[in-house]
Amino acid sequence: MGNKAARFFMYLFLTIASFISVFPLLWMIIASTNRSVDVTKGTLIPGSYFMENLNSVLSSNLGYINAFKNSLFVAVVTTALAMLVSSAAGYAFGIYKSRLKNMTFSFILLSMMVPFAALMVPLFRLFSKFSSIPGLNFIALNTHGSVIIIAVATAFLIFFFRQNTAMFPKDLIEAAGLDGLSEYGIFFRIYMPSMKSTYAAAVVVTFMSSWNNYLWPLIALQSEEKRTLPLIISAMGSSYTPDYGMIMTAIVISTLPTALIFFFMQKQFVAGMTGSVKG
């Protein structure tokens, strides 16, 4: 009998927890279909104002479409470069092991302990120098390059690829070596294709963190036409007379890419987060 009560309590608890987790997002979607006045009144009925709200988002002087493009550009380039640079390092650390390489790897892991909050000051000063150095203009402050470059090599990704290289069959490398493939050939033609699930997980996590990144873009991207979505949404939210219907529509659209990833690649998302891919 006590067991039955316990099970009832368990279902009740999980139902409430699920409801609380989903409600703010449901509320956001409903709000995006209503006028701002109705949103503040607390309506829970879907309205018919989505198109009007969408229009206000697109025509707002904050440049939403431009910010969407900027976010997409930054996230795609960051992810592509990160996959190349970080996975190459993880691959070499995992397969061509040596004492010196192991020491270098441990050294890199130390960077995981460094909080970004502590890097804010020196990075701002460092990047503000790049504009006066010819050839480094593309990563100076106020360029998308400045946001991309610091996310290309991360200790987490290198660690992630090195760990998962353990699943990679080493005899494939020997065989490829006998066939006359160079290390580059092995990396691009054998390692990359055979590590698809690892790459998928790394892509999901890298793309999402770039898409949602706020603090460094806030510091680095001062001019309006360079801003990414989180900066625009933050600006909308801090307005004195917030149009909540419009803001929620802006958030719904900016959440679409990550929501799609979440629903279709949840397994890879979890694998990337927890740092382990199960074959």
Binding site: S21, P24, I251, A259
Partner: peptide, 30 residues
């Protein structure tokens, strides 16, 4: 179903959910 629902908040960016909470918890809010 439970797992996906409780994991769902992870789709939102920190800025987005902050604004959602700001409006939900506004003085005249929901």
């Amino acid at each position: 179903l439970f797992r996906t629902a409780i994991f769902l908040p992870c789709v939102t960016s920190l800025v987005s959910y902050s604004i959602i909470f700001k409006s939900l918890f506004a003085t005249d809010g929901f």
